[in-house]
Write a protein that binds this DNA or RNA. Sequence first.
DNA 1: GTGATGCGTGAATAATGATGCACCGAAAGT
DNA 2: ACTTTCGGTGCATCATTATTCACGCATCAC
Lengths: 366, 366
Amino acid sequence: MNRPEHSATFDSEATGGRWAVSVGGGMSVCPGRLGRYRVKTPEVYTDEQLRVVAHLYYREQLDQRRLGGLLNLSQAKVSRMLTIARQRGIVRFFVAECEPRDRDLERRIERKFDLESVAVVRTPDGMTPENKRQYVAYFSASFITSLISPQTKVVVAGGRSIGALIPRLPEDRHRGVTVLPALGVVDSVVAQVDAPELGRVLARRWGGRFMALDTPAIAPDRQTRDSVLRHSKARLVWRRLGQADAAIVAVGTPTNSVFANRYVVSDADHETLVGCGAIGEMCGRFFDRRGCECDSPWREQVISVELEHLKAFPQVIALVVGGDRSAALTAAIRGGLLKSLAIDVEGARALLEYEPVKKPRTVGRK
Amino acid sequence: MNRPEHSATFDSEATGGRWAVSVGGGMSVCPGRLGRYRVKTPEVYTDEQLRVVAHLYYREQLDQRRLGGLLNLSQAKVSRMLTIARQRGIVRFFVAECEPRDRDLERRIERKFDLESVAVVRTPDGMTPENKRQYVAYFSASFITSLISPQTKVVVAGGRSIGALIPRLPEDRHRGVTVLPALGVVDSVVAQVDAPELGRVLARRWGGRFMALDTPAIAPDRQTRDSVLRHSKARLVWRRLGQADAAIVAVGTPTNSVFANRYVVSDADHETLVGCGAIGEMCGRFFDRRGCECDSPWREQVISVELEHLKAFPQVIALVVGGDRSAALTAAIRGGLLKSLAIDVEGARALLEYEPVKKPRTVGRK
DNA sequence: GTGATGCGTGAATAATGATGCACCGAAAGT
DNA sequence: ACTTTCGGTGCATCATTATTCACGCATCAC
């Protein structure tokens, strides 16, 4: 009981994807597996037929069921025809330009700090910090992904920002990286945002393998740490940490770090650290305003990737949300700890405006 | 729930504007009561917010739930924001132009027959007759509506075509017409497409009132008819029929009319009618090729609007689907029975090509 | 203050759209 | 000729989106 639908003609610029989207003046049909479909889904429907269906659906606003009734098509068929109509560009969506990144700030930061690449994400006003993290994570995900080569070793730190980031990273089964956590388990109570957890997820996501670092992030004292590293099989992993190709890290402050938040950084500890000149933290290690690790007892207890190693990585990307990290960030950058940065507008502005208390003793670039 | 054959469904409550649609080069934000909303729903959201949501939804293809999670909005809110984004034109749909009407044929018919206005609807190939009716009805609905002034008296005939039309007529609570059926009940078994039924529906649809004609469409004989009209209170209604401002009618043939289809038009009757020169039918009345009512017994028994009255109406719109009505149509037009016409391409072509023949042999018999 | 009134909201729910699946017929392969 | 393959289809079902509903919070009139 059907349409003698036949009258093959025209050029169907078949496209994969689902929605033909156009933005601003130009128009970009969504990508996808073109050639395949071109062959697999030939001219089953006339452009004219699709136009009619599209017209009735989008302009006349008939729902698919009614529309099908009118043209004697099943609802499923209408749905499929609409998909094809979008693919062929018979229907296009124009979305007002919304540039989620501030290119200008990016340039300025890149120039000022001589960073490899910077993403500054515009966050809508009135977001809660958590929203902001999610938002920035979302919009910097592809940026960050693009900075990491397939088949490499990637170190992943923990924290809420990175915790927000990982699930947004585009799945990519062919990236096949080796993921290592920047540090071990911080607490017996495993948090979702601990580096090992995140690493595991990332490895799964990118179809890579994960190497666990089954050590505590912090040992009670130096001896313990050394023996852990000497005897444990984790030693291997730990050493590989130093030879990774890239790292995705967050930047903390003495008052706001993984440890400060979840741990024992007593007021006393805090004072000690500040006394040592600590101004920021990365991967569990505190550094001064030159970006050099502080020579505090912490240093002897932490089991994580070393700052000196980070410096040597071809790529180290920091994900920072918020405007209270300028000092730490500046220090880390000046110290050559970072190569790239993803940050929100607020943070970017603060960073640009931040003036180190003392003369910025620009430690040479990496 | 499958194939509702043809919808006995109601009207889809056109809920104001749902989609901002743009076509071709121009762009029209969906109508609806913008002004109203503009006032009722002032700048609750900034354009920027809407852009972000629209971007994430249309370009990044997040579903509303995920998107809401990202921005900390309920799914419902996202849905509403998208609606507003469409209304404000932040999102626009471009649909390839699809001209459902054939302007050229319309011109030619208007010119050739000196009709007031003509709509020729392009029907896709391979439709069943029922589909075609639905389709033509759909696309001629606004055309027909535009020809009928508010606050006037409208006569409505029956039949499948008009039955398909009525539910497609745009709702318009301010039209406030008075609807009268072209004729009474044809049978004790009321069909959905009988004039009284259709009239009722139309009146509801246009927020007007309906005047019932509680008489049979056909009386057994002249006496009965006269007495029905004399005594019945329907007389009033019947007389008003003659004073209406507009009519929406179909055109039948002696072999294919309301009566032929549903009733007693025996072969004998048929012969009688043809003998009288009947070539077409409208509102239960048969006419010859000059458009004059045939002087057959039928004429004395029918209780319906008179052709002479139709002639006097400022507006009479015929809705015709199919190419087998050319003779009847030509006669009706030549006789001045019609002012406007809505027809499909096939019918239009047939009409233009049709050449009246002297011999009443023209009526193709089946 | 004390209701009214209106607007915006999320949760629940209804409506609508997309898709997995089995089936069918045509064309290709054996 | 028979079998296989493959695109295309409708149905049933699942997923997503729109809307209904009751509520909370503000403003406004009394």
